[in-house]
Design a protein around this nucleic acid. Structure first.
Length: 308
DNA sequence: AATCCGTGCAACCGCCATTTC
DNA sequence: AGAAATGGCGGTTGCACGGAT
């Protein structure tokens, strides 16, 4: 036998909310709060609505300081960056964008941002082919580009292109706290965005590092993503992917070192910024660790955009 | 003018986690 | 301890609207 429904569906109004219903709900919550019980709320107010529906209406539209539409370029970039790092965890993504709701961001991603990103990937892929040879000649440390097609949305099917083939001697580790090595002297990067995502519900970590720099008179960007998750995106944009598909746990230390070395070899870097997702204990850990090395930690990633 | 079709988005559904009894 | 109630979340649906035919 299934669970009892939260309300009597037959006697509950559904569909769009009327201005009168909105006013009733808003007025009551502003004066009395929710009382910690959404299910009982509609009866108190005299609304023929399901408690869950009331909750949704309040959280997504009626509560103060909600923004609708008009997403900025910075917000676009932040959503993309977070989606790449942690996937469709809209509530976490929304927490990074003040005034935005998870529902709004989800709709925005599904209807517009996803398409915009695919378009950008196509253009970038084309552009990359033109510049690839000169970049390789200029700096052999330059990572390979992997073009993204529509299947990036499936995230799992692409085979990464390695600069050097991974060895089988990578340590087989159990989960451990990240101990990020000291960032290199930050004097040559134009901008980087480093993010470490530690999943709160599974023992996965995701590590991405986006670097923007000038090379051979071209504005370039590179991104490195490492993940322990079998389901993680294996490559994105101009990515060096250090993880074969299928999930391969490796020592965070070793991977981090590789990443820093990779970036250290590039010219024109000068700044580091970090974003760390919950849980807070990990944030504090990471902050402490990086402060020891005089690097900056920000709550939000600073993304100056991607080369187009 | 009528119909079709694609798009955007508010709202719902169902599942899982957490809390309460 | 365990069942029930509730909260929270992501996926999906269905409607309204506008542009194309």
């Amino acid at each position: 036998m299934g669970r009892a429904p939260c309300c009597d569906k037959a006697n509950v109004k559904r569909g769009p909310w009327s201005p009168e219903e909105d006013a009733k709900l808003k007025s009551y919550i502003e004066n009395h709060g929710t009382g910690g019980n959404w299910i009982a709320l509609p009866q108190k107010i005299g609304l023929k609505r399901c408690g869950k529906s009331c909750r949704l209406r309040w959280l997504n539209y009626l509560r103060p300081n909600i923004k609708h539409g008009g997403f900025t370029e910075d917000e676009d970039n932040l959503i993309c960056s977070l989606y790449i790092s942690i996937g469709s965890r809209w509530s976490i993504i929304a927490a990074q964008l003040p005034g935005r709701t998870d529902n709004d961001i989800k709709n925005y991603w599904n209807t517009r941002l996803k398409k915009k990103l695919i378009g950008r990937q196509r253009r970038q892929s084309c552009c990359n082919k033109q510049h690839q040879q000169s970049q390789i000649n200029c700096n052999k440390r330059q990572v390979h580009n992997s073009s993204i097609n529509d299947e990036f949305l499936g995230l799992y099917n692409q085979q990464p292109i390695f600069e050097t083939q991974p060895t089988n001697s990578m340590p087989n580790i159990s989960m451990m706290m990240p101990t990020l090595q000291a960032p290199f002297p930050c004097n040559s990067l134009q901008t980087t965005t480093t993010s470490v995502g530690l999943n709160t519900t599974s023992p996965d970590f995701h590590y991405t590092c986006d670097a923007s720099y000038v090379q051979d008179q071209h504005q370039c960007s590179n991104s490195v993503m490492i993940s322990s998750a079998a389901s993680a995106s294996t490559s994105f944009m101009n990515s060096t992917c250090l993880q074969p598909t299928g999930g391969d746990l490796r020592a965070f230390d070793e991977i981090s070192q590789h990443v820093w070395q990779e970036i250290d070899g590039l010219d024109n870097f000068f700044d580091i910024s970090c974003v760390v997702y919950p849980p807070l204990s990990n944030y504090e850990f990471f902050q402490r660790k990086t402060q020891q090395n005089n690097s900056a930690v920000f709550d939000q990633p600073r993304i100056l955009g991607y080369s187009e």
